[in-house]
């Protein structure tokens, strides 16, 4: 985990965007890459260096679904709940994964910070419905069983690394 008060990379990102407040969204995206979420300290610093109120930065960060204000797990599972996936029962996959990982909508990240479970409105891979994205990698034509298998595979791999 990045030191929350070490802004070296944030400084570089700001410089790359010329300290231009119009680039706020791109800056937040890049900063989120560094920390995997948007810490309050970093947002305050961004506000300071762009010369805009921190409330505005927070307003933007909390508006867009891609920004996260809480640390996320190392594997982010995004279940597509677009029309095509919904019609093909994506909710069953969601329920199966939730149950398997012991998560809820209020509590989307596992305590070991390994998994975060989210739903997205549409990934545009409707031909592969129902679909699930694990850290930007799309898996399609899933069933609750095959989705669980994907997650189990990660869990096994992680367990092996730790052992």
């Amino acid at each position: 985990m990045e030191n929350l008060r070490n802004f070296e990379q944030v400084c570089a990102i700001l410089k790359e965007h010329d300290h231009n407040p119009n680039r706020l969204i791109a800056i937040l995206q890049a900063v989120q890459e560094v920390y995997r979420y948007l810490p309050e300290e970093a947002m305050t610093f961004i506000a300071t260096s762009l010369g805009i109120p921190p409330a505005k930065v927070f307003g933007v960060a909390s508006f867009y679904a891609h920004f996260t204000l809480e640390p996320k797990g190392r594997y982010v599972l995004k279940i597509c709940d677009g029309t095509a996936c919904h019609v093909k029962k994506s909710t069953e996959i969601e329920e199966a994964l939730r149950k398997h990982l012991g998560l809820s909508s209020q509590n989307p990240t596992t305590p070991d910070m390994l998994f975060t479970l989210e739903t997205v409105s549409c990934l545009g891979t409707c031909g592969l419905a129902p679909a699930l994205v694990i850290n930007d990698e799309v898996h399609g034509l899933l069933s609750p069983q095959s989705a669980l298998a994907l997650v189990q595979e990660i869990q096994d791999r992680e367990a092996a690394v730790h052992a």
């Binding site: 231009n20 119009n22 680039r23 995206q29 307003g59 867009y64 891609h66």
Partner: peptide, 25 residues
């Protein structure tokens, strides 16, 4: 090329412009 940040409403043109300007969409 500008990458959106996850808001359906940005498909609406004035919201999209707000978003490019770095604001809430």
């Amino acid at each position: 090329v500008i990458e959106g940040a996850g808001a359906f409403v940005c498909g609406e043109e004035t919201a999209l412009l707000s978003s490019i300007e770095g604001n809430r969409g």
